[in-house]
Design a protein around this nucleic acid. Sequence first.
DNA 1: TCTAAAGTGTAATAGAATAACGTCCCCATG
DNA 2: CATGGGGACGTTATTCTATTACACTTTAGA
Lengths: 161, 161
Amino acid sequence: MTIPPLACQPHDHRHCIEQALAEAETLCARQGLRLTALRRRVLELVWQSHKPLGAYDILAVLSEQDGRRAAPPTVYRALDFLLEHGLVHRIASLNAFVGCDHPAHAHQGQFFICRQCHAAIELERSAISDSILDSARGLGFRVEGQTVEVVGLCARCQDAR
Amino acid sequence: MTIPPLACQPHDHRHCIEQALAEAETLCARQGLRLTALRRRVLELVWQSHKPLGAYDILAVLSEQDGRRAAPPTVYRALDFLLEHGLVHRIASLNAFVGCDHPAHAHQGQFFICRQCHAAIELERSAISDSILDSARGLGFRVEGQTVEVVGLCARCQDAR
DNA sequence: TCTAAAGTGTAATAGAATAACGTCCCCATG
DNA sequence: CATGGGGACGTTATTCTATTACACTTTAGA
């Protein structure tokens, strides 16, 4: 049995945010990347919860709460930077973005998304990616990127019945 | 080694279209569903190739080519019907739709999408879905739907280098 | 200090999907 | 035969998501 992920159980979420920001600082420092105030803030907002967040939700906070002049490109550029360096992931089936648990190494996770509480649990199971690579090999298909998004009910929301 | 899929090699595509439409007729007849002229036409358009097709591309053909009065809901309603009964699949990462090879039984395929020729090859490998179900079990997560979309280069486009 | 590149602001637009309402037509029932 | 109810489709408007193009500013490095 694996360790149950924080995402779908009560926890001190401030710690998640702090850690994510700290890891981002470290990663950017190490790679000579510029984690600007805007990018840092967008990352923080994406980490506001474990629920994938829409670009326009981020935009709304920047405008209304931060009083920052912001139009869509402002947000999308920040998100592009964060995506490119693995600090956030995009959930295609939701048109939304979620913070990455472990940005230290390049990867594309697998996401288990609860339709009830909307939490997105990220895993990185070689059993899944290997089975995909294996099927691809049978086709002679060269894999460049994998999107695995599973929707259903997390353990907590099942219990809450 | 599996049989190489038609999608990424030359073939008489008229046959694919005919067969898809015939299967749809059969399936709808058997289930008492109404495959109206519009739904049939949208299915035919989706099958125009093995490339996922956008809703607005379909819309354009209906308007310009068929001279049909059509607005987005016209297309989306037809697509919803076709999706609901497994005649087409939606590719979330492309916001596009592709015909289903084998609509006879309910399923959610796995898609291998070539970034060069844009063909989408549908597979249904239990090795992939089982590995997902297995990981879900470890989380206590109840799976209701799987999205597996792999992007890369198909065998044919690799050779074409 | 100067310059090139990267980052951000701004306006406009493209692309994807849905909401809400009205009309028509089929056909099952009386 | 009529009739009325539900499904399918037309229509208009709107919402949500994302990108293009260009201007201005900041930053790092020569």
